[in-house]
Design a protein around this nucleic acid. Structure first.
Lengths: 213, 213
DNA sequence: CGAAGAATTGAGGTTAATCAACGAGGGTGG
DNA sequence: CCACCCTCGTTGATTAACCTCAATTCTTCG
């Protein structure tokens, strides 16, 4: 869902431009004055926050269509980092937030994000380590960018994040994440060889372990 | 911030009505078809989700101005319960979501909620039990409904939730919450006598314990 | 007064964190 | 080309935090 390609929406803002970033760079830093709102065209972005003592929590993984840089006041409340090569559409803040149609378009996307944040709060507050990792893998599979092989028993996904990043997303330590992966691997629920991120997943066996079903 | 009392917004929907609820009743159940969007006029509402085995996570505490019942698809993804006597403005879904000005108004509120959900994710994923309880108490103090005594060292707040509800909000058990309260009380950071919810808080001593500063 | 719900506190168990060692790539520079 | 280093991942041993189970007290309400 893209604002610019939405033909039914009137009054497209003139101040939209395309921006590219390489993998693993900071796109937005916490505390920065908010100049623009970004929508992802391609690639993946992580949104996180840091505590003063260095603890980090990643709370959103965004793919194509996702928006970030949205803030109620004038300053960004979180960090945005690219995970892959990323292409973004940047909407200048001033024009965008004065456009009723843009705000309306944005409300639609914010609803989806809130829904995901709700689900993630349940994971962080109430799920065990294995349930969290199982939920994470299911999330990768169900991502819109991964339409292949839905319905089949076994699927291949690419894990783009390091153990440490996954840990910061799931509210665990990297060792606990690694142990959960190993445990799922020993149980023949997932399979992988090299550290290239490619992983086979037996969906029907994995889903019951997420705690959600 | 209320939509109806916002004089600059054009085209107010005809289908807004006022609804009242007593304390501790279910306003919206998970899975229900979404018929309306609600904005709180007065009182407090908790938003939560249940896992199939009964685990519960409360992820939002809403006061006057807060909205809920917003969903990207046609069904509610979470439970809304009143904490106090509540007065709501209900906006029928059909007219509301076809109104650009209403959606634009809603985007503003959703931004604020997303910000709160981000903060809560950090709490759930990365904070210790005492830090969570300290953060919870600070949240009560900083709520818009509690403008009294900002700046002074000591403030009185009313804790409306039971230990069990606080636990489900903070991702802990009720015993751990109780122990954290006792610990803060022994350290002369908070003070209370009866179980009526009234509590004195020494803000300057409490704030450093939240982990955020 | 008795009963029911809420809060507190203690003892003991479990999970995940911490501390630590090691191995497997990948890149850099000699 | 190979040696080295650095990051990442895995695994083991131990510790600490929080959960579970249980008993007791406090509070409210019929």
């Amino acid at each position: 869902m893209s604002y610019l390609s939405e033909p039914t929406v009137a009054g497209s803002p003139s101040s939209a431009r395309s921006v590219d970033f390489p993998p693993r760079v900071t796109i937005i830093d916490e505390g920065e004055p908010a100049r623009a709102i970004y929508q992802i065209v391609s690639g993946n972005v992580m949104i996180s926050k840091l505590l003063p003592d260095g603890r980090r929590q990643i709370f959103e993984l965004l793919g194509p269509g996702g928006i970030f840089g949205v803030t109620p006041n004038g300053h960004h409340d979180s960090v945005a980092e690219s995970l892959t090569d990323v292409r973004l559409t940047a909407f200048d803040k001033g024009p965008a937030e004065n456009s009723l149609s843009f705000n309306s378009f944005m409300a639609e996307l914010l609803k989806i994000q809130i829904c995901a944040l709700h689900e993630h709060a349940v994971l962080l507050g109430r799920k065990s380590a294995v349930e969290r990792v199982a939920s994470y893998i299911m999330e990768l599979i169900e991502a819109p960018s991964h339409q292949a092989g839905i319905g089949s028993d076994s699927v291949t996904v690419r894990v783009l994040m390091t153990r440490s990043e996954i840990a910061d997303y799931l509210g665990l330590t990297l060792e606990t994440v690694s142990r959960a992966f190993s445990q799922l691997k020993r149980s023949d629920i997932i399979a992988y060889e090299r550290h290239d991120g490619l992983m086979q997943v037996h969906i029907k066996r994995l889903r019951p372990l997420t705690g959600t079903y």
